[in-house]
Amino acid sequence: MTEYKLVVVGAGGVGKSALTIQLIQNHFVDEYDPTIEDSYRKQVVIDGETCLLDILDTAGQEEYSAMRDQYMRTGEGFLCVFAINNTKSFEDIHHYREQIKRVKDSEDVPMVLVGNKCDLPSRTVDTKQAQDLARSYGIPFIETSAKTRQGVDDAFYTLVREIRKHKEKMSKDGKKKKKKSKTKCVIM
């Protein structure tokens, strides 16, 4: 069974824990209790493949930012979460993405942009803004509501699919490099 290491990042209060708990335990946590770091595991079937999701729910508070490099190193894919009623959390996505790329030393890291709290009427981040940002990053965008469960499975499952595509691409690139290195030079 394939294991996928997913990391949920975003500013404090955007609903990272609520999304994760909704996926794992099928219930909505409405009281806000700032996370330092929590880890969850769940076995699911995605596109006919049974897999184990190892999900790291991270601290959004700035005082825990020193811990970010460590979990970013171990993560295979990242859910970059903002709240649709919090423009600052949307603007912060850029910083999370840049930090992930720096730590992973790669421009090509599996990510999904997630606009959470889409059940709320007080939207300050337009869907088109988020779609445009995701398009500019070359990553999928999904709106979710941890409260109603809308888009929750889709967000995590899409990230797994992005990781699969990335692994497939990397193995193809690896095979191309191996083929090239088999060419021999004969000096007579």
Rank of each mutant, 00 (worst) to 15 (best):
F78V: 12
I84G: 15
F82I: 08
V114A: 02
G75S: 15
F78H: 01
Q70N: 10
M67N: 06
M67C: 05
D69M: 03
K88E: 13
F78M: 06
C118T: 08
M72T: 09
M72D: 03
D69H: 06
D119Y: 04
R97Y: 14
T74F: 06
P121V: 10
K101T: 08
D105A: 11
R123Q: 12
D69T: 04
S89E: 09
V114H: 00
K101H: 06
D69W: 01
G75D: 02
H95G: 05
I84M: 15
C118W: 09
V125A: 11
V109A: 05
Y64A: 13
S89P: 06
E63S: 07
F78R: 00
K101S: 09
R102H: 08
E107Q: 06
R68K: 07
Q99F: 14
K104L: 11
D126G: 08
L113F: 13
G115P: 04
E63F: 02
V114Q: 00
D119L: 05
S122A: 10
F82L: 09
E91P: 02
F78Q: 01
S89G: 08
V103A: 14
D108E: 10
Q99H: 09
V109L: 04
V81M: 14
M72F: 14
V81F: 07
E107H: 09
S122K: 08
S106G: 13
E98N: 04
S122N: 12
Y96R: 02
Y71Q: 15
G77K: 00
D105H: 05
T87R: 10
E63W: 01
V125I: 10
F90P: 04
T124K: 09
I100T: 03
H95F: 06
R102Q: 08
K117L: 15
M67E: 12
E63M: 03
I93C: 04
D92A: 10
I93G: 01
L120K: 12
Y96E: 04
I84F: 13
K101N: 06
R73Y: 07
R68Y: 05
V114D: 00
I93L: 10
V112C: 02
R73C: 10
F82K: 01
F90H: 04
A83D: 15
T124H: 10
Q70C: 07
T124M: 10
E63A: 03
D126E: 08
R102Y: 03
I84V: 14
K117W: 14
D126Q: 07
E98Q: 05
L120E: 14
A83R: 06
R68E: 03
E63D: 12
Y96K: 02
N116M: 15
K101V: 05
R123D: 14
R68P: 02
R97A: 14
V114N: 00
R73I: 06
S65C: 05
G77E: 00
Y64E: 10
L113K: 00
M111V: 06
M67T: 06
Y96W: 15
Q99C: 05
V103R: 11
D69L: 01
V109K: 03
D105W: 03
R68A: 08
K117Q: 13
I100W: 06
R73S: 12
V103M: 15
I100G: 02
F78C: 04
P110C: 03
M72N: 06
R97L: 15
Y96T: 04
L79Q: 00
D108Y: 10
R123T: 13
R73N: 11
Q99W: 11
H94R: 12
E107R: 08
Q99V: 13
T87G: 13
V114M: 10
S65P: 04
S65Q: 05
S122L: 07
Y71K: 08
I84N: 15
A83Q: 13
V81W: 00
E76D: 15
S106M: 13
D92W: 08
M111G: 00
V103N: 09
K117N: 14
R68I: 01
D105K: 11
Q70I: 07
K104S: 13
C80S: 02
L113R: 01
Q70P: 04
F78S: 01
S65V: 04
V109H: 02
L79G: 00
T124N: 11
G77M: 09
Q70L: 10
F90Q: 06
E63I: 03
G115F: 14
S89F: 15
